[in-house]
């Protein structure tokens, strides 16, 4: 597979992928959103967009990941999220905040380009009464709002921007079926790549079998939420064991489903691996299959 990819890259004029020699990319900051009301959320997002542009380390397309919290059904017809201050925001509020993030990036843009991602999580959806159908709708509307954001970016001449979605999908936080529904809803809507910045919590650290993970999940389930449809893995690599678990996920998918690659890695400060070490550790076991993206909470 690697030779085939290298050959394709040569044809494309980009040269081979000397993955073993590639250094970890510079991290870019990802944000946990703590809001109080819609207007404050908008000014918060504007500031984060500007901060991101000012600090952008290179001229490539980089991911601005705003984690708005747990996906929620707010009423019979309203979806949104409850953020980390436990404030509920509708998708209309979140879209307005995302537009302000786009404004902030535009006003402070210095180099490169950005993919602004509407991030959420699978945190205790079913425990608060959401069904798999509700989660499917949450994923669908998340992608829809991302597409709405792209319409805003395009209509305002923000050519250095695009938009996608993301979810911190943790096996510990909810069951397989309802979490898969997030991915399926996004896929059905059809716009947004769905970056999985979650974990393979409890999964085996070696082999390629469909082993058991936490909370009734299996390796195949983690593979599904990270690569089915429009999903792409941007896995949390906080400890070396996490890289081993995700390597098993990749091998399982490749054994039965086909090609699998990582969109990069998600890192954090205050954990076992530094951000650079996180990316390098994942890349060392998946050489040539880890894109140079490094979203970091705490950087």
């Amino acid at each position: 597979m690697r030779l085939r990819l290298a050959a394709i890259a040569v044809v494309a004029g980009l040269g081979p992928f000397p993955a073993a020699a590639r250094a970890a990319p510079s991290p870019v900051t990802a944000w946990y959103v703590y809001g109080t009301n819609a207007s404050e959320l908008a000014s918060y997002a504007y500031a984060r967009g500007c901060d991101f542009a000012r600090a952008q380390p290179d001229t490539r397309l980089r991911l601005l990941l705003l984690d708005f919290g747990a996906a929620r059904k707010l009423s019979s017809t309203t979806w949104g999220a409850v953020d980390f201050s436990n404030t509920r925001f509708s998708n209309a509020d979140i879209l307005d905040a995302l537009k302000r993030a786009a404004d902030g990036y535009h006003n402070c843009h210095a180099r490169g380009s950005v993919d602004i991602a509407y991030g959420s999580t699978n945190y205790r959806m079913s425990g608060l009464g959401m069904t798999a159908s509700d989660a499917w709708s949450a994923g669908w509307h998340q992608s829809e709002r991302s597409q709405n954001l792209h319409g805003y970016q395009a209509s305002h001449g923000y050519d250095s921007q695009t938009s996608d979605a993301a979810a911190d999908m943790e096996p510990s936080w909810d069951a397989v079926t309802i979490t898969k529904a997030l991915v399926d809803g996004d896929e059905a809507q059809g716009w947004a790549l769905y970056f999985d910045f979650g974990s393979a919590d409890g999964c085996p650290q070696s082999g390629s079998a469909d082993g058991a993970c936490t909370n009734g999940w299996r390796v195949s389930d983690v593979a599904y939420v990270s690569f089915a449809g429009l999903a792409l893995p941007l896995p949390e690599i906080y400890y070396a064991a996490n890289a081993s678990q995700w390597t098993v996920v990749r091998k399982w998918w490749e054994a039965g489903e086909g090609w699998y690659a990582f969109a990069g890695a998600t890192a954090s400060t205050g954990v076992g691996l530094t951000p650079a070490a996180a990316w390098n550790t994942l890349n060392s076991s998946n050489s040539g299959l880890v894109e140079p993206e490094l979203a970091c909470f705490g950087c």
């Binding site: 201050s85 205790r124 911190d168 974990s199």
Partner: peptide, 30 residues
């Protein structure tokens, strides 16, 4: 052209214990 910036209006959050159903952003691995 620059976009209009939203008003910068700091909103303090009084110190409080988060409700038990409030999402925590920290990975269960940590």
């Amino acid at each position: 052209e620059p976009a209009p910036a939203p008003p910068s209006d700091p909103h303090p959050i009084p110190g409080r214990i988060l409700a038990s159903d409030a999402p925590a952003p920290i990975s269960p691995a940590v």
